[in-house]
Design a protein around this nucleic acid. Structure first.
Length: 278
DNA sequence: ACCCAGGAAATTC
DNA sequence: GAATTTCATGGG
């Protein structure tokens, strides 16, 4: 992968194993909106950019060279060799090979940990459309507006200071008290998200699960999408069905150190092939 | 009206 | 302990 900076835009060349739609519409982030030209616009780190294809290249519009190097390159996980990971995973199981071929451009985003924590608390017993709406209201009400008109994800401090009443403008229902408990535990240091990045996996997961409203599945999502712990293997309703039907006799540990990436291929494949489970 | 949605807590058995 | 019910909200 090479990149050049030109006029507020970063042009990325020679990038393989990447698709905007596979990566941004596969249920790992709730903050990217598709544009009319097929690109996507979104906000992370408080900065709003759009990203689109230009022939073989990708353009990140609205990014400085420095922001690309310190933020976006990592956010989109451009430096991990997905070709190699896919090849290794595909050897493990023929159905996993199929799933990877179905959406070969998926990458696991490195989202901000607190955003992943709150987003996946909101995701429980909810549908993606509505999750996106709640997250949008959360940012518009409690985030900071930037020059581009986008809103940052609110800080833990900002949310921790709210009452349930004040938070209820986002209409997240019974999840309001979960969000507040998460924000307050992060502010107090009872839960240290950065420490969870390096802690042994079971300990990191247990620490996240001390938050009211965070069970195994949400904890795994935070570990995978927010802390890039690729051994995490979130088991939602789709994945439980998929494991039963497509991978009987297979346990999550079978997929090894990149189980979370395997999970993303399988999740996306299953969601777009519901007929497999009728 | 009923059912479900990238679950988890509370209750019941 | 394992199985069931409840928890807001909105769309089909």
């Amino acid at each position: 992968m090479k990149y050049i900076f030109e006029n507020n835009t970063v042009r990325i060349q020679g990038l393989s194993d990447f698709s905007l739609r596979d990566t941004l519409c596969c249920g790992q982030s709730f903050r990217w909106r598709e544009l009319e030209d097929g690109g996507f616009s979104g906000t992370a780190f408080g900065k709003t950019v759009s990203i689109k294809c230009d022939g073989e290249d990708y353009l990140i519009i609205g990014s400085t060279k420095e922001d690309f190097e310190t933020l976006w390159k990592g956010y989109f996980d451009f430096e991990l060799d997905y070709g190699k990971i896919k090849a290794d995973l595909s050897l493990l199981h023929p159905t996993l090979s199929e799933a990877a071929k179905f959406a070969p451009g998926i990458r696991i985003l490195r989202q901000e940990p607190f955003e992943a924590l709150i987003s996946f608390i909101i995701s429980q017993n909810n549908n993606i459309k509505r999750i996106e709406g709640i997250v949008e209201r959360l940012c518009e009400n409690f985030g900071e507006k930037n020059e581009a008109g986008g809103y940052s994800f609110p800080t833990a401090e900002k949310l921790a200071a709210l009452s349930e009443e004040e938070l209820s403008v986002i209409r997240a229902g019974f999840r309001h008290r979960y969000i507040l408990d998460a924000a307050r535990k992060v502010v107090s240091g009872d839960v240290d998200l950065e420490r969870c990045r390096t802690l042994p996996f079971p300990e990191a997961k247990a620490e996240l699960m001390t938050i009211v409203g965070v069970g195994e599945k949400v904890a795994d999502c935070v570990l995978l999408y927010g802390l890039h712990r690729t051994e995490a293997f979130p088991l939602d309703v789709w994945m439980k069905r998929a494991m039963k039907v497509l991978f009987p006799e297979v346990a999550p540990e079978f997929f090894g150190e990149y189980a979370g990436i395997a999970q993303q291929y399988i999740f996306h494949y299953s969601r777009l092939h519901p007929e497999l489970f009728e």
